[in-house]
């Protein structure tokens, strides 16, 4: 494949087995075509980037779409968004050939699995209402700061500090409970930083055969934590959070 004279680089979406090449119809990043480069039984899903390439927001969606299409047909070891190699030769030799053992190990590890992104978020008013109801200190400081108005600044700071501490404790308990419930039916879990009003934000690597059990347990724990917690699950997703770990094994 003769490289284009105007190519800036080769954008890599992920790696698959060469004998299971997926048909990807989505446009690639920068409106470029999605192609495949093969070497030694492995294949990289790539796009050749034009010289004037500048990332746009829609390229994020393109990257994900390409991964999702490939993932729909075969096992993929995804690359992070924005992975660019100097040339096709680099993709074939430095990536596919030289890192073949890791890539094969990763593919084996990820076979038959999907990623589910779970977020358990607090309904702020529900949570705060519960904190007020269960903590006399909070209730008292609330009354004081309302009554004092502007003069109640120290009370407001103290109230907020107290609430922040209680929220931290609550988050720890809820996160532990959710993880304990779900880890038993997952191959792996990667925990992210939660937002201020989140209990937990994590990716789970789940064997397809366990999906129903995972969903049932998630449903159960979410129901037990309502209405203070509202949970969301996104997936099945290509295993982006586990590609590095899978390759390292």
């Amino acid at each position: 494949m003769a490289p284009s004279a105007t190519t800036t680089g080769v954008y890599v979406y992920g790696v698959v087995r060469a004998d299971e090449l997926p048909a990807v119809s989505a446009d690639g990043v920068g409106d470029s075509a999605v192609e495949v480069l093969e070497r030694d039984g492995l294949a990289a899903i790539v796009s050749r980037l034009p010289d004037d390439f500048r990332v746009k927001r829609r390229d994020l969606n393109r990257h994900l779409q390409v991964l999702e299409e490939a993932f729909g047909e075969t096992t993929v070891v995804p690359c992070a968004f924005g992975t660019v190699l100097a040339s096709e030769a680099d993709v074939e030799t430095a990536l596919l050939s030289q890192r073949r053992p890791e890539l094969e190990a990763a593919l084996d590890r990820l076979d038959g699995t999907v990623q589910l992104n779970v977020k358990a978020a607090y309904e702020p008013d529900e949570l705060l209402r519960e904190l007020v109801a269960k903590n006399p200190d909070v209730a008292r400081l609330r009354e004081d700061s309302i009554r004092l108005g502007d003069a109640g600044y120290p009370q407001r700071v103290r109230l907020g500090e107290l609430v922040a501490g209680l929220l931290d404790e609550r988050r720890e308990e809820d996160a532990a409970r959710i993880l304990a419930t779900l880890s038993g039916v997952a191959e792996d879990v990667a925990v992210d930083d939660p937002g201020e009003y989140d209990a937990l934000k994590a990716s789970f690597l789940v064997d397809r055969k366990q999906l129903d059990r995972f969903d049932a347990r998630l449903e159960e724990v979410a129901r037990s934590l309502q209405p203070v917690v509202r949970a969301e699950v996104i997936g099945p997703l290509p295993p982006t959070a586990f590609a590095g770990a899978a390759a390292a094994q």
Binding site: G14, L60, A80, L85, L218, Q226, I234, L237, P238
Partner: peptide, 28 residues
């Protein structure tokens, strides 16, 4: 339901970033 929402795919930039930004195979 109220307490659990399911989506097959991320919608919204934040959710997409969660999936693909800094997540994936590390290349030297």
């Amino acid at each position: 339901s109220n307490y659990l929402q399911r989506a097959p795919s991320p919608s919204g930039l934040a959710d997409v970033l969660d999936v693909i930004l800094d997540k994936g195979l590390v290349i030297d």
